[in-house]
Design a binder for these strands. Sequence first.
DNA 1: TGACAAAGTAGCGAAATGCTACTAAAATAC
DNA 2: GTATTTTAGTAGCATTTCGCTACTTTGTCA
Lengths: 272, 272
Amino acid sequence: MEKRNANGLTEKEFLSQYNPGDYKRPSVTVDILVLGMNEKLDGLKVLLIRRKDHPFMDCWALAGGFVEYDESTYRAAVRELYEETGLSDIYLEQLYTMSQPDRDPRMRVIDVAYIALIPIVEAHAGSDASEAAWFDVSMTDEEMILKNETLGVFMKYSLEKKVFHNGILQIENYVPRLQSKEALAFDHAEIVMEGLLRIRNKVEYTDIAFNLMPQEFTLPDLQKVYEILLGKTLYKTNFRDKIQDKVVALDKKGVSVTGGKKSLLYRYKNRY
Amino acid sequence: MEKRNANGLTEKEFLSQYNPGDYKRPSVTVDILVLGMNEKLDGLKVLLIRRKDHPFMDCWALAGGFVEYDESTYRAAVRELYEETGLSDIYLEQLYTMSQPDRDPRMRVIDVAYIALIPIVEAHAGSDASEAAWFDVSMTDEEMILKNETLGVFMKYSLEKKVFHNGILQIENYVPRLQSKEALAFDHAEIVMEGLLRIRNKVEYTDIAFNLMPQEFTLPDLQKVYEILLGKTLYKTNFRDKIQDKVVALDKKGVSVTGGKKSLLYRYKNRY
DNA sequence: TGACAAAGTAGCGAAATGCTACTAAAATAC
DNA sequence: GTATTTTAGTAGCATTTCGCTACTTTGTCA
């Protein structure tokens, strides 16, 4: 009583005869936007890899690579992240799939972008590899800047507001437009921009920010991280009220950096 | 003064010699989750297409198809939506990329899922094609149900809460598990679930809900749509206060359906 | 020990939200 | 016609959240 299709085939027969065809298929890659707080907790950093070959030779790019035929894009992202930066067991979430046909001059490539967050304490992992480096990244409504003062690299994009029509609504979108001599490879500036918008948005309704904190942290430090991600200052009292059911106090205190009372250490409740 | 790579090639030389290789590439498809409100404005509907061949023959599936070699996935989604349902010029946004290697028994397929919203007034477009039909869809914390009483089709998934570790955080995710005899094709139940979560979330901080409304609408109707998307009742006064700067009143009134005062018609401010 | 710096708490006005109750206008019943 | 029912729309107040200032506490440094 098996179902037969219009050609009279059962599913088993259909699958055994199925020919995928030899038309041209896109290649599939993953890229990972790795973000962490800087040492002073007053800004975000992004991990970039220097390209050693054409195209975009010598340009800085996100970590990434090709997806194997039998692995999910998530698995590929985990693998590439480890291979290129040594990082593992960090927060990783799918961000956006880039598919402009001309995004890679070599061939048609579909790129699934991921976003990774890394705790402050590990913020220097992977940075000793000569081809990887951490860049300060900041974004306002008008521009996005990536820089590494040690390397003397400065990249600047203005964010052009574009109003387009998607269905019946006017949608405002931002498109990064290069303003500096140096540039990110491919469409990676768009990915960085989208990633920063995503994380800024998710801070408001998830606990994603804790992925940027070490195991034990102080509330003033946590507040700084929230302030950077949200792009505005918060009030101590209100912040502590809102956060208190997400954290548990430890009975130790942190260190005083520039003199002043030592703050209590906390850890995230839903850490595993 | 052109840059040369390790093999002494300029970019132009490199690209002209570049061989993409003949290793196996995944196929790339798009699927579109088309959502609209039902007539009574007390629930969402999803547009499904009946599959006419293996695999998942006779199962209901999202609209979708293969991405051409030289089109973006967005373009492919627009094209497939029009080809399969006749719908065009509606809200369309990228949702998630599905990439489990075994998601299609025929071959490796990477699927970029999109979500489309359609105004009430057009809610029956495409439904006359015999292989397409609108299904009532509802989702609670525990289950997701899709049904079409005219066709006598009933699909039910329990939403199993899964706690997994992504980096340092415990993340709670829901996975749909089939409870009924009939089922959606492929991993489309996951896409529907993700889409409903996405839209529920976006209602809170965007004007996405207006894509589900006709040009002219009443505030009580708009409130019903918000209530369905958010899954909770709202207070008239507060709702009107919050919405009033997004809409402009027209000087006509709508029709009274079951007796009672006629309500004023409005339209969305940022409509084009 | 005193000056300074940061941690942490108290408290209050303003704004947003939860909630009840009313009046106004339309359809329906008689 | 008038009464009844139904929905639209407004008033108003209690509760909670948020914006903001000021204070006390505890540490470092000179």
